[in-house]
């Protein structure tokens, strides 16, 4: 009885092409929609380097590494965003075939795997990331940006956020009639 009610309720939600959103989603959304602007920044500085090298004949020593750095941040936070959108790549042949209660069990297992994986990354990498950060480890180049010092801790933070977001997804999707992927353009006003 309750199940049917919930199902109707959720179908309404789904049909609006919108979905429940809580503070965890808001954090992911805020991060993602801020960090994504680094992509045009990468293009801009890249053009600056080409201009300086080809036209001015004064190549820079920092563009290459800045691009690497910014892109790395994008991939990591992009991983969190992809988790929120349920757009990580998976094979749904069997998943689509089984009943909804079985799907919930599959979802539960998936989430446990992701959480265990995140725990392994964080547990195994904690010491290394901490050491890099505390020693402000640099990239061993002329410009010498602190890429290891920042990217290793950021990797752990993003993996943690992926795990949190996955648990959040599980809770939200548990009541839904069917898990669905969300269209990123819906995020844009």
């Amino acid at each position: 009885m309750l199940d049917k009610q919930l199902q109707e309720q959720n179908e309404k939600v789904a049909s609006k092409d919108d979905f429940p959103i809580n503070w965890i989603d808001r954090v992911s959304l805020f991060l993602s929609h801020t960090i994504k602007y680094l992509i045009p920044v990468i293009v801009l500085v890249m053009m600056y380097e080409i201009f300086m090298r080809y036209i001015m004949e004064k190549p820079t020593m920092w563009v290459n590494e800045l691009c690497l750095w910014l892109a790395g941040i994008c991939y990591l936070v992009g991983g969190v965003y992809a988790t929120r959108l349920r757009s990580h790549i998976r094979i749904v042949l069997l998943y689509d075939w089984v009943s909804r209660p079985t799907q919930r069990i599959f979802d539960l297992i998936s989430t446990i795997i992701i959480v265990l994986f995140a725990a392994a990354v964080i547990y195994g990498g904690m010491e290394d990331a901490y050491r890099s950060f505390i020693n402000w480890e640099r990239f061993a180049t002329f410009w010498d940006p602190p890429i290891p010092a920042t990217m290793k801790p950021l990797t752990l933070i993003c993996v943690f956020l992926i795990a949190v977001q996955s648990v959040n997804n599980l809770i939200i999707d548990w009541r839904n009639p069917k898990e669905k992927q969300y269209d990123p353009s819906k995020d844009l006003k």
Binding site: I35, K36, C74, Y75, L76, G78, T83, P184, D187
Partner: peptide, 18 residues
Amino acid sequence: FKDALTRTFKASGTILTI
């Protein structure tokens, strides 16, 4: 512009993870 950017961001995160 924003939409293309958002899609790029999502797809990059997806690809990096796999």
